[in-house]
Amino acid sequence: MPALFKTEKLPGEAAGPHPRRGLLGLLDGRRAGDRLGLAPELRLGLAVTASLAALIAGDPLALGLMLAASLLYLAAQVRPRVILAAYLALAVLAGLAAGCLWLMGFVFQALRNISLDAAVNPFLRLGLSVNLLLPLALHSRLTDLSGILNRLRLPGLIKLPLLVTIRFIPTFLNDLNQIREAVGLRFRGRGGLLFWARRPLLGWRVCFTPLVVRLIRSADELAVAAELKGLSAESDFGHRPPRLRPVDQAVAVLAALTLAGAALLEILHAAA
């Protein structure tokens, strides 16, 4: 009888575990997709500034301009596949929100007559946040962010949850990936989309039950790990002084121009 397996070549230990694909691929090394390698101070500054601007802006054109510019910023730092996945999630959220709004319209008449601005703006703001927070979360080291937050003298009540949340993102993406694969494997061959269309409640459960369970468990495990590590509001990982390279300066200038453009659109909108 021939051997069940024969191989011509199997490499040694050096091969190590495989680099992760999809969302998790981004978290490996320093770091796939990050072509700009921007200073963490700039990333954090842009995220905070744009979030504030998004809160103030009420003109869909101004928000649209910031969204378009931030999408370019995102595309320069994150793989297209990940952007697609993030926007897919955003689309699902938008769909759910629109559905809820439609249902609530039967109860609250006022919700049937909302303006286009009011309907579109929340999603523009959400997209803007995703575009700016994703590179920050995926490409920032905990030590860098801790250093910046210490310099800003933020209270531990804000700093600690922020640090743990950033640490939580890889774990969450890992869970998301594994749930997607597990669901695909368990239910394949059952009729694909038609199967889920006939059983929307089952589809809802299958997606969200393991996600919620893992979120709770992972959060608990991470909290225990942080406690054991001694991570506390007083933890100070030190910091290096910021070094803004030409690429950082160029991005900062482009961001300022975008904000100026958005402000102009906002003024014109208000005047009209």
Binding site: L4, F5, K6, T7, K9, L10, P11, A15, H18, P19
Partner: peptide, 14 residues
Amino acid sequence: WPGGEDLFAGLSGR
């Protein structure tokens, strides 16, 4: 894996 060396090559079996 993308960008990596062969994890295995010429693997045959049943």
